[in-house]
Design a protein around this nucleic acid. Structure first.
Lengths: 341, 341
DNA sequence: TTGTATGCGTTATCAG
DNA sequence: CTGATAACGCATACAA
């Protein structure tokens, strides 16, 4: 739908050849300042816009990054994408954003679609259902630049950005123990997720250090149906083996927990204390009682992913993305959900 | 970074001409079933992926829609984008998503960037700062398909999707009046926004119908700084002309109001009742007290925008998008923030 | 039914 | 310093 002039027409108007005009606009050293000026002013006058597809075809790059996230309605992922955009925009890159809705099949379709080169790189966080990663391996083996954040694939040798999941899980659990909890539940989206594993290890080690033994019944694996999750948690709370503390490994399960607690006679923090990985600080302090949070540096994670990619994509002959995990620490903010006054 | 085979190579492998292969893959009627089968299976075997840019250049369309929203961290906009994606994905379209961060200058830059044809259409909701709309007029005058939702530009003759803003403002205000409110404040992001105007008209008419006179001091125009907004609202609440009801025209200002109330000695709903346009139902019922909401059909609005565009873009010789406003109604859910028990 | 030739709009190579 | 020409990968008009 680009109805504007093209290079040839612009050149005709200037009585110059297309190649000269192209070089002038690209600020080539072989063009005189005089003609550069003429060309640029005429281009502005006619509002010349280079056709991005011709350019992409020619240069074999799209100036586009694909971002693949499990869900849009999440303050964490929203902030990460904001962080990515903040950087990529400065380099004139565009963002294709896809949500997998936590569905591996959709994730596979999206990733396979992306193999055709529509984007120059992918920044992604895998779905909670993802265990078979062949679609991602294939992508990476083809040399496609791929960066993971938060929910990463350890087996794929590329750069990953995470927060200090283990330590945060450890410290969060330790905080609950210090507040008197002895039976601490762990809420997760899926056992497969990297964040689940790391946060859970931290949880286990904190229990161990305190001489507490983990109880399998206190590990709740949730699903995509909010109502179902609320009921799972409510049953735990109403059951014979009621926990006195909860560590939620993701934001939405903390909200589900609040809903579940409302359906019981329990009081937070007196009967049950709650801490959660949580990005929406404004909401955390409005919850009743306000929620003790482990805040992931979402925006910053997005920025770092993008900076790394911009460096790789905009400089000539960059090496492959190194196989390393970069950790940006979270902050624990203690609020009323874990402190009895 | 498309390292796969191209049409020519695929054709060579098959000992056919590129054009035959192209036609076979595009299911042309002039190709025999036998060769179609052969071509398709070889294409799969070699994992042939057509180059999207060559195709875009040739066909002068990108199979890409640009979505421009004022902010990502909003349940309303997240759901709209989800709704858009739900439809466009079925048609094999991709989504470029841009956030203006409520900044006209960024909005202008994005829109101007989009004029080069990188996307086949734009779905957008304008920033709260947008009053000069020349960038959008120019786009539309060039024949670029443009659809507005929620925060629309009435002056641009294209299709717009909104909720029943006037009625919802009216009914919301009426509800407050029925609950005994006599001094009702109206919170908005900006006087320029279409949603502000319509919701405000509804508010005014409801006051009028009840014989109440509007008071300019009860209209609060907010900004992008949450803390500043909270303080503006707190001052209103602590001031001599304290309202007994609040109609918030956007989600984030309802949250700011809850923060503000926490800084006063007032109680919701006894001293002040609150109703708000609000999309995040899970949060609404967790707030303390739970928030009476006017829920916009966000996902549905996204779907409708996308359906309209898909129809226009995928069928040959479609007329221009008609100049009309399509309204999808909101639902009011009464919760504790407006009902004294 | 299949093959040949052309052009989409750019940039790069090569000549002048 | 500037111009002519080719090529990127694909789809189509035209030819066979």
């Amino acid at each position: 739908m680009n109805t504007g002039v093209n290079l040839k027409e612009l050149a005709a108007e200037l009585k110059l050849s297309p190649s000269t005009v192209s070089r002038a606009l690209n600020d080539s050293y072989e063009i005189s300042e005089a003609t550069k000026k003429k060309v640029i002013s005429m281009a502005e006058k006619l509002n010349y816009q280079p056709n991005p597809f011709a350019r992409s075809l020619r240069e074999n790059k799209s100036k586009t990054i694909a971002v693949v996230i499990p869900e849009r309605m999440s303050s964490f992922f929203s902030k990460v994408v904001d962080g990515i955009e903040e950087i990529t925009q400065q380099y004139g890159y565009h963002l294709l954003v896809y949500s997998t809705h936590e569905d591996v099949d959709r994730e596979k379709k999206i990733v396979n679609l992306l193999m055709n080169g529509r984007a120059d790189a992918i920044i992604m966080s895998v779905s909670s259902q993802t265990s078979d990663i062949s679609h991602l391996t294939r992508l990476h083996e083809r040399g496609f630049p791929l960066v993971f954040f938060d929910r990463i694939c350890s087996d794929i040798p590329t750069t990953k950005f995470i927060t200090n999941d283990y330590e945060s899980g450890f410290e969060g659990t330790k905080h609950l123990i210090q507040q008197g909890c002895r039976k601490i539940a762990f809420l997760m989206l899926s056992k497969e997720l990297s964040i689940t594993k790391d946060r859970y290890r931290g949880y286990l080690d904190a229990l161990k250090q305190a001489g507490l033994s983990p109880e399998p019944q206190l590990n709740i694996t949730c699903c995509q149906e909010e109502e179902e999750n609320i009921e799972s948690i409510r049953k735990l709370l109403d059951g014979p083996n009621r926990p006195d503390g909860i560590l939620s490994s993701v934001e939405k399960l903390a909200l589900a927990t609040y809903h579940a607690v409302k359906r019981t006679h329990l009081r937070i923090p007196n009967d049950i204390k709650i801490i959660s990985f949580f990005s929406n600080l404004s909401i955390a302090s409005l919850l009743n009682p306000s929620l003790t949070t482990i805040t992931q540096p979402a925006f910053n994670i997005g920025e770092e992913c993008a900076k790394l990619l911009m460096k790789k994509l905009t400089k000539p002959r960059q090496p492959d993305l190194p196989n390393q995990v970069i950790t940006i620490p979270s902050n624990i903010t203690i609020r009323s959900s874990t402190i009895v006054v």
